[in-house]
């Protein structure tokens, strides 16, 4: 509140965080768990866009694909190969979920870059649920597939015996930190990029600075397109790596 007041005094108004506000779609009021909000709207848009690409785009089932079908096949092929390469053949069973995750994050990040858009992946509540879902399912799969042997993941048998208990403590801590880093990495990247863009755009109110400001916004936008794709890729490949640990806990 204090910084806002200062900005107004200087003739500038920075509200870089306003874009992340969760508001009800219809009218004012409290945000209950069932209220349709801007989060709901953008989740819906993301889902519709993914369905448009993967379902409507492949409607033709053409042997020689058109452009949309090529893109859909490219996304499929890339994710499939990633799952196969990282987790091995037995990880392909979980390919649909990983593909869902990848497409959801990629489309959320990309659609969030549209002006006036709301980026659902910039919220820790969303990425936290995604990361926790991965963490819990990977842990469950690990114990279901390997039983108690899954704990061998924390017992580095290639290290000297003296070091093993210490390494085990570090491994356990790093295992439980996984969902935190997994979720904060994505949300932080998205939030920071959008906030920076808003701040640069705010400087455009001053006529002298505005050309530099607009150039900076353009540059940051290009960078953000890259970040949006890379973060979706990173989240997905880390999911694959965690899944590999669960399927083959022996290093």
């Amino acid at each position: 509140m204090a910084s806002e007041a200062q900005g107004e005094e200087a003739g500038l108004s920075f509200h870089p965080m306003d874009q992340f506000l969760v508001k009800p779609l219809f009218g004012e009021g409290d945000v209950h768990w069932y209220t349709p909000t801007n989060v709901t709207l953008w989740l819906f848009i993301v889902a519709v866009a993914i369905a448009a690409l993967l379902v409507a785009g492949t409607r033709g089932r053409a042997i020689v694909p058109n452009r949309v079908q090529s893109v859909a096949e490219l996304a499929y092929g890339m994710t499939y190969k990633m799952v196969e390469d990282v987790t091995g053949k037995d990880g392909l069973k979980y390919f649909p979920y990983i593909m869902t995750l990848f497409m959801f994050i990629l489309f959320s990040n990309m659609l969030g870059l549209l002006p006036k858009a709301f980026t659902v992946t910039s919220h820790i509540a969303v990425t936290g649920v995604l990361a926790l879902a991965v963490f819990i399912s990977v842990t469950v799969i690990g114990f279901a597939k390997n039983g108690a042997q899954f704990l061998g993941l924390f017992w580095v048998s290639s290290a000297p015996l003296v070091l093993r208990p210490i390494l085990a403590v570090i491994e356990v801590i790093s295992y439980f930190v996984r969902p935190v880093s997994h979720s904060i990495r994505l949300a932080g990247n998205m939030m920071a990029g959008h906030a920076v863009m808003k701040v640069f755009a705010g400087f455009a109110a001053i006529a002298v600075i505005s050309p530099i400001s607009i150039l900076a916004v353009t540059a940051i936008y290009g960078l953000e397109v890259l970040v949006a794709t890379i973060q979706a890729y990173v989240f997905t490949i880390l999911t694959c790596v965690y899944l590999k640990d669960a399927l083959h806990p022996q290093h």
């Binding site: 969760v22 209950h32 768990w33 709901t40 989740l43 819906f44 889902a47 869902t100 649920v129």
Partner: peptide, 13 residues
């Protein structure tokens, strides 16, 4: 706003 976001996210996913 967490329950709202989590609820709609789970529905969407």
């Amino acid at each position: 706003t967490f329950p709202n976001q989590i609820f709609w996210l789970i529905v969407t996913l």
